[in-house]
Amino acid sequence: MTPTSLNHGASAARPPAAGTFRFAAHTARIPALAGVGFKHTHLDAILADPDPVGFVEVHAENYMGDGGFPHRALERVRQDFPLSLHGVCMSIGGPQPLSEDHLARFKALVDRYEPALVSEHLAWSTHDEVFMNDLLPLPYTEETLNHVCSHIDRMQDVIGRQMLLENPSTYVVFENSTLNETDFIREIVRRTGCGLLLDVNNVFVSATNHGFSPMSYLMDYPMEHVGEIHLAGHAVQEDDEGEPLLIDSHDAPVADSVWDLYSIVIRQSGPIPTLVEWDSDLPDWPILRAEAAAADRILDEAAHSFLMGKSHAVGA
Protein backbone atom coordinates (compact mmCIF):
# COMPACT_ATOMS: atom_id res chain seq x y z
CA MET A 1 0.00 0.00 0.00
CA THR A 2 1.45 3.35 -0.92
CA PRO A 3 1.43 5.93 1.83
CA THR A 4 -0.27 8.42 -0.51
CA SER A 5 -3.30 6.16 -0.73
CA LEU A 6 -3.73 6.70 3.00
CA ASN A 7 -3.98 10.42 2.57
CA HIS A 8 -7.52 10.76 3.79
CA GLY A 9 -7.07 12.90 6.85
CA ALA A 10 -4.89 15.45 8.60
CA SER A 11 -4.38 17.22 5.29
CA ALA A 12 -3.43 20.43 7.04
CA ALA A 13 -0.38 18.69 8.46
CA ARG A 14 0.75 17.53 5.07
CA PRO A 15 4.35 18.62 4.56
CA PRO A 16 5.34 20.34 1.30
CA ALA A 17 7.30 17.47 -0.25
CA ALA A 18 4.88 14.71 0.65
CA GLY A 19 4.09 12.19 -2.02
CA THR A 20 7.38 12.60 -3.83
CA PHE A 21 9.14 9.47 -2.61
CA ARG A 22 12.56 8.55 -3.78
CA PHE A 23 11.50 4.92 -3.84
CA ALA A 24 8.51 3.57 -5.65
CA ALA A 25 6.18 1.66 -3.40
CA HIS A 26 6.93 -2.02 -3.45
CA THR A 27 4.88 -3.98 -5.93
CA ALA A 28 4.08 -6.80 -3.49
CA ARG A 29 1.13 -5.06 -1.90
CA ILE A 30 0.00 -6.03 1.54
CA PRO A 31 -3.72 -6.11 2.24
CA ALA A 32 -5.10 -3.78 4.92
CA LEU A 33 -5.73 -6.71 7.24
CA ALA A 34 -4.50 -7.71 10.66
CA GLY A 35 -1.29 -9.71 11.00
CA VAL A 36 0.68 -11.21 13.85
CA GLY A 37 4.28 -11.38 14.95
CA PHE A 38 5.56 -14.79 13.84
CA LYS A 39 6.90 -17.12 16.55
CA HIS A 40 8.22 -20.57 15.75
CA THR A 41 6.00 -22.16 18.39
CA HIS A 42 2.98 -21.02 16.35
CA LEU A 43 4.26 -22.25 12.96
CA ASP A 44 1.99 -25.26 12.59
CA ALA A 45 -1.05 -23.46 13.97
CA ILE A 46 -0.59 -20.49 11.63
CA LEU A 47 -0.33 -22.76 8.60
CA ALA A 48 -3.30 -24.90 9.63
CA ASP A 49 -5.66 -22.07 10.63
CA PRO A 50 -8.74 -22.13 8.37
CA ASP A 51 -9.06 -18.37 8.86
CA PRO A 52 -5.54 -17.21 7.92
CA VAL A 53 -4.12 -13.94 9.23
CA GLY A 54 -3.45 -11.17 6.73
CA PHE A 55 0.32 -11.18 7.09
CA VAL A 56 3.15 -12.07 9.46
CA GLU A 57 5.97 -9.94 10.77
CA VAL A 58 9.41 -11.06 11.93
CA HIS A 59 12.30 -9.34 13.62
CA ALA A 60 14.95 -9.21 10.95
CA GLU A 61 17.88 -9.98 13.26
CA ASN A 62 16.50 -13.39 14.19
CA TYR A 63 16.98 -14.47 10.57
CA MET A 64 20.50 -13.21 10.08
CA GLY A 65 22.14 -16.56 10.76
CA ASP A 66 23.62 -18.50 7.86
CA GLY A 67 21.02 -21.28 7.77
CA GLY A 68 19.19 -23.85 9.82
CA PHE A 69 15.67 -24.10 11.17
CA PRO A 70 14.89 -20.35 11.40
CA HIS A 71 15.26 -19.88 7.64
CA ARG A 72 13.37 -23.09 6.97
CA ALA A 73 10.47 -21.85 9.10
CA LEU A 74 10.46 -18.39 7.53
CA GLU A 75 10.57 -19.84 4.01
CA ARG A 76 7.55 -21.92 4.89
CA VAL A 77 5.37 -19.11 6.24
CA ARG A 78 6.51 -16.85 3.43
CA GLN A 79 5.03 -19.34 0.95
CA ASP A 80 1.58 -18.69 2.37
CA PHE A 81 1.69 -15.16 3.78
CA PRO A 82 2.83 -11.65 2.92
CA LEU A 83 5.75 -10.67 5.12
CA SER A 84 6.67 -7.58 7.10
CA LEU A 85 10.39 -7.35 7.91
CA HIS A 86 10.83 -5.41 11.14
CA GLY A 87 14.36 -4.37 12.09
CA VAL A 88 15.08 -4.02 15.78
CA CYS A 89 18.82 -3.32 15.99
CA MET A 90 19.81 -0.88 13.23
CA SER A 91 20.42 1.86 15.82
CA ILE A 92 19.13 4.58 13.51
CA GLY A 93 18.83 7.05 16.40
CA GLY A 94 22.47 6.95 17.47
CA PRO A 95 25.21 9.39 16.45
CA GLN A 96 27.55 6.85 14.87
CA PRO A 97 27.20 5.69 11.25
CA LEU A 98 25.11 2.58 10.68
CA SER A 99 27.02 -0.69 10.56
CA GLU A 100 27.67 -1.56 6.92
CA ASP A 101 27.82 -5.23 7.90
CA HIS A 102 24.38 -5.01 9.45
CA LEU A 103 23.01 -3.14 6.43
CA ALA A 104 24.35 -5.85 4.12
CA ARG A 105 22.70 -8.54 6.23
CA PHE A 106 19.44 -6.61 6.20
CA LYS A 107 19.54 -6.15 2.42
CA ALA A 108 20.19 -9.87 1.95
CA LEU A 109 16.97 -10.61 3.86
CA VAL A 110 15.00 -8.08 1.81
CA ASP A 111 16.29 -9.65 -1.39
CA ARG A 112 15.67 -13.20 -0.26
CA TYR A 113 12.20 -12.89 1.31
CA GLU A 114 10.75 -9.93 -0.64
CA PRO A 115 8.79 -8.47 2.26
CA ALA A 116 5.81 -6.27 1.49
CA LEU A 117 6.74 -3.96 4.38
CA VAL A 118 10.12 -3.00 5.84
CA SER A 119 10.44 -1.04 9.06
CA GLU A 120 12.84 0.11 11.77
CA HIS A 121 12.74 2.21 14.95
CA LEU A 122 13.34 5.78 15.98
CA ALA A 123 15.75 4.64 18.69
CA TRP A 124 19.33 3.51 19.22
CA SER A 125 20.90 0.40 20.71
CA THR A 126 24.57 0.29 19.70
CA HIS A 127 27.37 2.61 20.78
CA ASP A 128 30.92 1.86 19.72
CA GLU A 129 30.72 -1.91 19.46
CA VAL A 130 28.44 -2.47 22.44
CA PHE A 131 24.90 -3.60 21.69
CA MET A 132 22.39 -3.00 24.46
CA ASN A 133 19.36 -4.91 23.18
CA ASP A 134 16.84 -2.21 24.00
CA LEU A 135 15.27 0.64 22.05
CA LEU A 136 16.95 3.57 23.75
CA PRO A 137 15.66 7.15 23.49
CA LEU A 138 17.29 10.20 21.95
CA PRO A 139 16.86 13.95 22.41
CA TYR A 140 15.02 15.66 19.57
CA THR A 141 17.33 18.38 18.24
CA GLU A 142 18.55 19.66 14.87
CA GLU A 143 21.70 17.60 15.33
CA THR A 144 19.99 14.30 16.12
CA LEU A 145 17.54 15.00 13.28
CA ASN A 146 20.48 15.24 10.88
CA HIS A 147 21.90 11.96 12.16
CA VAL A 148 18.60 10.13 11.89
CA CYS A 149 17.89 11.44 8.39
CA SER A 150 21.33 10.51 7.09
CA HIS A 151 20.94 7.03 8.58
CA ILE A 152 17.52 6.53 6.98
CA ASP A 153 18.89 7.82 3.67
CA ARG A 154 21.68 5.27 3.92
CA MET A 155 19.36 2.41 4.81
CA GLN A 156 16.93 3.21 1.98
CA ASP A 157 19.83 3.49 -0.44
CA VAL A 158 21.16 0.09 0.55
CA ILE A 159 17.87 -1.79 0.47
CA GLY A 160 16.68 0.10 -2.59
CA ARG A 161 13.21 0.85 -1.31
CA GLN A 162 11.22 2.84 1.19
CA MET A 163 11.26 1.94 4.87
CA LEU A 164 8.73 2.73 7.59
CA LEU A 165 9.93 4.39 10.80
CA GLU A 166 8.28 3.46 14.09
CA ASN A 167 7.57 5.98 16.85
CA PRO A 168 9.09 4.89 20.19
CA SER A 169 7.65 4.32 23.62
CA THR A 170 9.74 6.31 26.09
CA TYR A 171 10.19 6.62 29.83
CA VAL A 172 12.36 9.73 30.08
CA VAL A 173 12.71 13.06 28.29
CA PHE A 174 15.87 15.07 27.56
CA GLU A 175 16.37 18.57 28.87
CA ASN A 176 18.18 19.49 25.65
CA SER A 177 15.35 18.48 23.30
CA THR A 178 14.24 21.40 21.15
CA LEU A 179 11.60 19.69 18.99
CA ASN A 180 8.58 17.66 19.93
CA GLU A 181 8.34 14.11 18.68
CA THR A 182 5.69 14.65 16.04
CA ASP A 183 7.53 17.62 14.52
CA PHE A 184 10.72 15.57 14.57
CA ILE A 185 9.03 12.65 12.80
CA ARG A 186 7.29 14.87 10.26
CA GLU A 187 10.58 16.47 9.32
CA ILE A 188 12.22 13.05 8.92
CA VAL A 189 9.49 12.03 6.49
CA ARG A 190 9.87 15.28 4.55
CA ARG A 191 13.63 14.94 4.23
CA THR A 192 13.99 11.20 3.62
CA GLY A 193 10.76 10.12 1.96
CA CYS A 194 10.42 7.29 4.45
CA GLY A 195 6.99 6.11 5.50
CA LEU A 196 5.76 5.57 9.04
CA LEU A 197 4.85 2.70 11.26
CA LEU A 198 2.44 4.07 13.84
CA ASP A 199 2.62 2.09 17.08
CA VAL A 200 -0.61 3.05 18.83
CA ASN A 201 0.42 1.32 22.05
CA ASN A 202 3.66 3.33 22.05
CA VAL A 203 1.66 6.53 21.68
CA PHE A 204 -0.48 5.55 24.66
CA VAL A 205 2.51 4.45 26.76
CA SER A 206 4.48 7.64 26.07
CA ALA A 207 1.43 9.85 26.55
CA THR A 208 0.71 8.30 29.94
CA ASN A 209 4.36 8.38 30.99
CA HIS A 210 4.85 12.01 30.01
CA GLY A 211 1.39 13.37 30.79
CA PHE A 212 0.28 14.46 27.33
CA SER A 213 -2.91 13.63 25.48
CA PRO A 214 -2.59 10.73 23.05
CA MET A 215 -5.28 12.38 20.93
CA SER A 216 -3.29 15.58 20.54
CA TYR A 217 -0.25 13.52 19.56
CA LEU A 218 -2.28 11.74 16.88
CA MET A 219 -3.71 15.06 15.66
CA ASP A 220 -0.14 16.30 15.12
CA TYR A 221 1.09 13.05 13.63
CA PRO A 222 1.52 12.86 9.81
CA MET A 223 -1.06 10.11 9.43
CA GLU A 224 -1.03 10.24 5.65
CA HIS A 225 2.40 8.57 5.61
CA VAL A 226 1.46 5.59 7.75
CA GLY A 227 1.95 2.25 6.00
CA GLU A 228 1.51 -0.01 9.02
CA ILE A 229 0.13 0.08 12.54
CA HIS A 230 1.36 -1.81 15.61
CA LEU A 231 -0.75 -2.84 18.58
CA ALA A 232 0.59 -4.52 21.71
CA GLY A 233 -0.01 -5.01 25.40
CA HIS A 234 1.76 -3.02 28.13
CA ALA A 235 2.45 -3.40 31.85
CA VAL A 236 1.76 -0.86 34.58
CA GLN A 237 4.39 0.22 37.11
CA GLU A 238 4.95 3.42 39.10
CA ASP A 239 7.22 6.41 38.58
CA ASP A 240 9.16 8.22 41.32
CA GLU A 241 6.04 10.19 42.25
CA GLY A 242 3.90 7.06 42.54
CA GLU A 243 1.99 7.76 39.35
CA PRO A 244 1.50 5.17 36.58
CA LEU A 245 4.54 4.41 34.47
CA LEU A 246 3.65 2.14 31.56
CA ILE A 247 6.13 -0.42 30.24
CA ASP A 248 5.91 -1.43 26.58
CA SER A 249 6.14 -5.10 27.49
CA HIS A 250 4.33 -6.93 24.63
CA ASP A 251 3.37 -9.66 27.10
CA ALA A 252 -0.38 -9.18 27.39
CA PRO A 253 -3.53 -8.50 25.36
CA VAL A 254 -3.94 -5.05 23.84
CA ALA A 255 -5.43 -2.70 26.46
CA ASP A 256 -8.98 -1.37 25.99
CA SER A 257 -7.77 2.22 25.88
CA VAL A 258 -5.38 1.30 23.07
CA TRP A 259 -8.20 -0.39 21.13
CA ASP A 260 -10.21 2.82 21.51
CA LEU A 261 -7.37 4.93 20.13
CA TYR A 262 -6.86 2.46 17.30
CA SER A 263 -10.53 2.67 16.32
CA ILE A 264 -10.30 6.43 16.15
CA VAL A 265 -7.18 6.24 13.99
CA ILE A 266 -8.70 3.73 11.58
CA ARG A 267 -12.00 5.59 11.32
CA GLN A 268 -10.04 8.67 10.38
CA SER A 269 -7.44 7.19 8.06
CA GLY A 270 -9.17 4.17 6.56
CA PRO A 271 -7.88 0.60 6.72
CA ILE A 272 -4.13 0.17 7.29
CA PRO A 273 -2.25 -3.14 7.72
CA THR A 274 -2.17 -3.73 11.46
CA LEU A 275 0.14 -5.97 13.44
CA VAL A 276 -0.56 -7.44 16.87
CA GLU A 277 2.79 -7.85 18.66
CA TRP A 278 3.13 -10.39 21.43
CA ASP A 279 6.75 -11.17 22.30
CA SER A 280 6.91 -12.38 25.91
CA ASP A 281 4.73 -14.82 27.86
CA LEU A 282 3.47 -16.07 24.51
CA PRO A 283 -0.14 -17.21 24.49
CA ASP A 284 -1.52 -20.22 22.67
CA TRP A 285 -2.34 -19.50 19.05
CA PRO A 286 -6.13 -19.06 19.44
CA ILE A 287 -5.61 -16.18 21.89
CA LEU A 288 -3.23 -14.36 19.57
CA ARG A 289 -5.50 -15.09 16.62
CA ALA A 290 -8.43 -13.56 18.51
CA GLU A 291 -6.46 -10.34 19.05
CA ALA A 292 -5.84 -10.12 15.31
CA ALA A 293 -9.53 -10.87 14.65
CA ALA A 294 -10.49 -7.96 16.91
CA ALA A 295 -8.32 -5.66 14.82
CA ASP A 296 -9.87 -7.07 11.64
CA ARG A 297 -13.37 -6.18 12.87
CA ILE A 298 -12.31 -2.56 13.30
CA LEU A 299 -10.65 -2.58 9.88
CA ASP A 300 -13.80 -4.08 8.33
CA GLU A 301 -16.01 -1.39 9.83
CA ALA A 302 -13.73 1.30 8.48
CA ALA A 303 -13.64 -0.27 5.02
CA HIS A 304 -17.42 -0.48 5.08
CA SER A 305 -17.96 3.15 6.00
CA PHE A 306 -15.41 4.15 3.38
CA LEU A 307 -17.36 2.38 0.69
CA MET A 308 -20.65 3.81 1.95
CA GLY A 309 -19.57 7.42 2.00
CA LYS A 310 -15.94 8.18 1.44
CA SER A 311 -16.45 11.92 1.06
CA HIS A 312 -17.99 12.23 4.53
CA ALA A 313 -15.00 10.56 6.13
CA VAL A 314 -12.44 12.83 4.54
CA GLY A 315 -13.67 16.05 6.02
CA ALA A 316 -11.41 18.10 3.77
Binding site: H86, V88, Q237
Partner: peptide
Protein backbone atom coordinates in the same frame (compact mmCIF):
# COMPACT_ATOMS: atom_id res chain seq x y z
CA UNK B 1 14.27 -30.98 19.25
CA UNK B 2 14.67 -27.67 17.52
CA UNK B 3 11.49 -26.20 18.94
CA UNK B 4 12.92 -26.09 22.41
CA UNK B 5 16.17 -24.38 23.32
CA UNK B 6 16.27 -22.45 20.08
CA UNK B 7 18.29 -19.73 21.74
CA UNK B 8 17.52 -16.05 22.16
CA UNK B 9 15.88 -13.69 19.74
CA UNK B 10 16.08 -9.95 19.43
CA UNK B 11 13.06 -8.15 20.72
CA UNK B 12 11.66 -4.65 20.56
CA UNK B 13 9.86 -4.55 23.87
CA UNK B 14 10.66 -3.68 27.44
CA UNK B 15 10.30 -6.09 30.30
CA UNK B 16 7.95 -5.96 33.22
Amino acid sequence: QNDCAAGPGTTCQGTS
